[in-house]
Structures are given as structure tokens and as C-alpha cells.
Design a protein around this nucleic acid. Structure first.
Length: 496
RNA sequence: CGGGGCGUAGCGCAGCUUGGUAGCGCACUUGCUUUGGGAGCAAGGGGUCGGGGGUUCGAAUCCCUCCGCCCCGACCA
């Protein structure tokens, strides 16, 4: 927290070029020094969030909310293309409904917030602020579904939910958070399983293609499964500090909720049958992942596809030249506006150097600098946030080159993240090997599927089973904990 | 809920040990000069020192008490 003050002092009498280093260090704690502090510094300095006056709550400021809106758009587009529709269900759930599915209640009981008063009256039945909506949606579905002709029901909702968490961190875990939750009902088990996996694929597309965050697809072990689910599928990503983050989940609920809520339909054969349900969710945590995967010591690096501003133009000019430069830059902005989300920073109160650092901190993917020298040569300077490269480009080619560069930045961020992930993924034969990597990163190893081994591992090392990857095969070297024959290949890691 | 840290201007902090007119840097306002990697000078505005109680002639400072925030753990998206 304070080491950089002393670091800064060392440079007090140093050449001028060190001054900016000192100033930068004062604003953002280096990632390598304290990842948690770095994270908090970045989100605050980049104007993404502010802390609310209640513990565990945050304000998503426009800069982060815009990213959320891009994520929503990317999700909706895919949900709609696969036949889903959005709807909205109530925030509050009567206690009796929440209690209907035994495992489900048990799983959430410790973190439900309750409404007990309406105005000055004590309520006859207390109301839960939804921690998730399976129960109230199940209740509604039971009334909507009579016949196999009513199936499938494919509904998604964008909503806020609340879970009374013990410790919270912006985006990663807050008491209230935004998400989407899909809830579907199907005629057959197979159809529901297909739906569950299809939605996992949708998440993968959005998270990898839009957020440029590489993920591993897998199924959760019994101990990590969603309360009330038969099977939970998950996407796991590796953060910049070597910790794992569950980034989206898709649940096959079997007939557990259908039975609890009497979701039944009369089939073609005249028999009354229970439906098969699924639910799947992804949250604003995705923004946290984006920050932790791509960010660096200068601040955010936002993938172009979800960047609120993709290109920023910084005009450089003094005195009489200034008006001409601004006019030129304005024309440039208007020219590029059809190609990308471009912003002209014509603030007069800041120097170009300040603006460079400012926009880099905010993670804008591409910067265009235009000054008198450039105008004279009919070119501009471009600077990429992903690589830091700075180069001149002929002005007349910008309309073509800018979209290409943005696409390249998107791809580069993804491949950088994937390289990092791969470099920090280790195949192991026994769990002691994790120590040489300080228990950071992903570990792939065989597991006997006995929960006692998982518990022992967690006790000793804080490492947990993140998932059983869908595309991994047993190595045959035996359970990494007990050495007995492996049953499943597992992905291990310390989790957020 | 355990361990640690911290509450003084919008932000970051000093002052507290040893009580005596509330300060510094950044930010903000105005003016002039500046502008190719965090500009300079000058003049300004801004505070119930987290809340309550106590000790005292006098409390940011000492005592009691409550509250809040951050980090790390256990629990969870």
C-alpha cells in the first residue's frame, strides 16, 4: 500500500522522464505487487464503479454499465436466435415457494434477504428477495403448461438478485448483482440436456469472442453443484493472479423442480408427465473477469468489441495551430464514426501527455494522435493499447485500417490471455506438485471422484476442483490425492 | 463470523505520543502563459476531524462506547 511512496522518493531528484513513472505509480498499485489492490485501484481510477453507502453494494458507473449493455446485446442476439424470449418475474418470492425444493432452500438459506414489513404492517408471510428465480418461475410455469404442445418453454430474464454474502468485492461478489437467468422446460430429458449444453456454448461464444477471455468447459463435481441441480456445467477462466473464476453456469435440473412445483403436461400418449427443466446464468462478474484477465500496470485493456470507446483522437497543437488541429481532428472523428465508436478528446485543460495516460488507464484500445506535423504529411500516429506499438498511418487509409486494427487488437488480447492461461496450466500426477507453482494456475490431474479427496485437498492447499473438463481424458496415473485409479480428469485451482 | 488495517476538504495523507486559532499534496474556481508521454505562475473556494458520551478552562489529540469501510481467511456467481 505504501511501498511506492518510498519508491517515488528515490526518483525525486532523478531526470524528468522518471516523473511520470512516479505519478503513475501513485495512482495504480502494480499488479505484481498486490493484485487485489491493483484491481480496486483500476476500477476506481478508470471510473467503473463507486462504493455505495451500504456494505457489499456498488454503483456501476456509466463506463462499466456500457460494457454490460454490450454483453447484454451479444447474449440477447444469441438467445433470440435460438428461440428464447425475454420476460420479467417478481423481485420478491413468498417463503413457501422458496422452500418447495428441499436441496435448493438448503443451498441458499444462509444468504437470503427477507422482507418482513409492508409499510407499517408486519407481513403475514415474509418475502424473500430473490437469490435466483427457479422457484417463482417454476410456480408460474406450472400454471402455464398443460400439454406437450406448450413445450418447450424458453424464457430468459435480465434481473438483479441478492445474496447476503459475507465478504464482497466489486463485480466478483456483491450483495446485489445483475445477471441474466434462463429458465426452460422440455418434454424430454434429452432435449433438456441438449439445451443445457447449448447454452453453455452460447456463453463460451460471448465470453471468448466478445470479452476475449478464454474459458474451459466442464461439469461441476457433486460438491460444487448448484443447489437442486442434477448436473451443473460451467465455464472456468484463469485470472491474472493465477486464481480461477467461475464465469457462467448452465444447470440441468432434471425433474427436481418440475416435481416440487408440479410442472406437468399431458403427453401425446395421454399420460400426465413431469417436464424437464434447465436454468443458466451469467453475471456482471464477467466484467470483473475482463478486468483481471486483460488489465496491466497502466490500467484497463478493454477488448474492442465491448469497449465503450474504441478509438480516441488526441489533438496536439498550440496557440494558433490549435484551432486548425481541432478542426482537422473533428473531421477525422466524423469520418471514422461510421466505422467505430470514436471519441475526440478536445479538452483544453489537459496536455496530450495527460490524455495519453488517462485513456490508457481507461483501456481504450486504439489512440490516434494528430498534430501539425501529421497534418502536413497527411498522416496520423496510432498507438495500440494491447501492444503499446506506436506507428504512422496515411490518413486516407484510416477508414480501412482502423477496423482492421481493432479486430487485430481483439484477437491479440484473446491470444495473449490464452497464452497466459496455457503457460499457467500444469498437468500433474500428485497434488504436491502444485506447491512448486505456489498453488497458482490451473492444474489438470486424475481424480477418483471421492469427495473426501476433494475435501482433503481443500483443507491442505485451498485448491478446489473447478470442474471436470468436457474434453479431457484420464492420464492413468491415479488420483492426485489418494493415488487410487482415477475416474475423471479434473481441473484444479484456487478459486475466487 | 475470525485475523489485520483504516476513518481529518472530492481523493491521498500529516497533525494525535506530550490537549491550546485544522494543515499539506492532488483535484476544483478565476486569470495569464502553455500543449508530440501526467505543464507553470498567481489569486481563490471548500472541514459538524465517522457518531455519541466522558475528562478538561479548552479535545482531531486523552478515556468509554457505537458505527462504517478495505484487505486476508471460512461460506458463495
Amino acid at each position: 500500500m505504501t511501498w511506492w511512496k518510498n519508491f517515488g522518493k528515490k526518483f525525486k531528484k532523478q531526470p524528468r522522464r522518471f516523473v511520470w513513472v512516479e505519478k503513475l505509480l501513485k495512482e495504480i498499485t502494480p499488479k505484481s505487487h498486490d493484485f487485489s489492490q491493483w484491481y480496486v485501484d483500476v476500477i476506481k481510477k478508470a471510473d467503473m464503479v463507486d462504493y455505495a453507502p451500504m456494505k457489499g453494494f456498488m454503483v456501476m458507473k456509466p463506463y462499466s454499465y456500457k460494457i454490460w449493455e454490450f454483453i447484454q446485446a451479444a447474449m440477447d442476439q444469441r438467445f433470440w436466435a435460438t428461440g428464447h424470449e425475454n420476460a420479467y418475474f417478481p423481485l420478491l418470492i413468498p417463503e413457501n415457494l422458496l422452500k418447495k425444493e428441499a436441496e435448493h432452500v438448503e443451498g441458499f438459506s444462509a444468504e437470503v434477504a427477507w422482507v418482513t414489513m409492508g409499510g407499517n404492517e408486519v407481513l403475514a408471510e415474509r418475502l424473500a428477495v430473490r437469490p435466483t428465480s427457479e422457484t417463482i418461475i417454476g410456480h408460474m410455469y406450472s400454471q402455464w403448461i398443460q400439454s406437450y404442445r406448450d413445450l418447450p418453454v424458453l424464457i430468459n430474464q435480465w434481473a438483479n438478485v441478492m445474496r447476503w454474502e459475507k465478504s464482497t468485492r466489486p463485480f466478483l461478489r456483491t450483495t446485489e448483482f445483475l445477471w441474466q437467468e434462463g429458465h426452460t422446460v422440455h418434454r424430454t430429458e434429452t432435449e433438456a440436456v441438449v439445451e443445457t449444453i447449448q447454452q453453455l456454448g452460447t456463453y463460451r461464444e460471448v465470453i471468448e469472442d466478445e470479452l476475449a477471455v478464454p474459458v474451459i468447459e466442464g461439469v461441476k463435481s457433486a460438491g460444487e453443484r448448484f443447489a437442486g441441480a442434477v448436473e451443473t456445467y460451467t465455464l472456468e477462466a484463469l485470472m491474472g493472479d493465477g486464481k480461477a473464476l467461475q464465469i457462467a453456469t448452465s444447470h440441468f435440473l432434471g425433474q427436481n423442480f418440475a416435481k416440487a412445483f408440479e410442472i406437468r403436461y399431458l403427453d401425446e400418449d395421454g399420460v400426465l408427465k413431469y417436464g424437464w427443466t434447465t436454468s443458466w446464468g451469467s453475471t456482471t462478474r464477467m466484467i470483473g473477469a475482463l478486468i483481471m484477465v486483460h488489465g496491466d500496470d497502466k490500467g484497463l485493456r478493454i477488448p474492442p468489441r465491448v469497449a465503450p470507446t474504441q478509438v480516441v483522437i488526441v489533438p496536439i497543437g498550440r496557440g494558433i495551430e490549435r484551432d486548425a488541429v481541432i478542426a482537422h481532428a473533428t473531421a477525422l472523428r466524423d469520418l471514422l464514426a461510421s466505422q467505430c465508436r470514436v471519441k475526440l478528446d478536445d479538452r483544453d485543460e489537459f496536455t496530450p501527455g495527460y490524455k495519453f495516460n488517462d485513456w490508457e488507464m481507461r483501456g481504450v484500445p486504439l489512440r490516434i494522435e494528430v498534430g501539425p506535423k501529421d497534418i502536413a504529411q497527411q498522416r496520423v500516429m496510432l498507438c495500440r493499447r494491447d501492444t503499446g506499438e506506436k506507428f504512422a498511418v496515411e490518413e486516407r487509409t484510416l477508414v480501412q485500417t482502423v477496423p482492421d486494427i481493432l479486430a487485430d487488437i481483439q484477437a491479440t488480447l484473446f491470444s495473449q490471455a490464452k497464452d497466459y492461461r496455457n503457460r499457467h496450466t500444469h498437468a500433474i500426477q500428485n497434488y504436491q506438485e502444485m506447491a512448486q507453482y505456489d498453488h497458482r494456475g490451473f492444474f489438470l490431474g486424475d481424480w477418483c471422484t471421492d469427495e473426501r479427496c476433494a475435501d482433503q485437498l481443500k483443507q491442505e492447499t485451498a485448491v478446489t476442483i473447478r470442474c471436470l473438463p468436457l474434453d479431457a481424458n484420464l492420464s492413468g496415473s491415479g488420483c492426485v490425492v489418494c493415488g487410487k485409479p482415477g475416474v475423471r480428469r479434473a481441473l484444479f485451482g484456487r478459486a475466487y
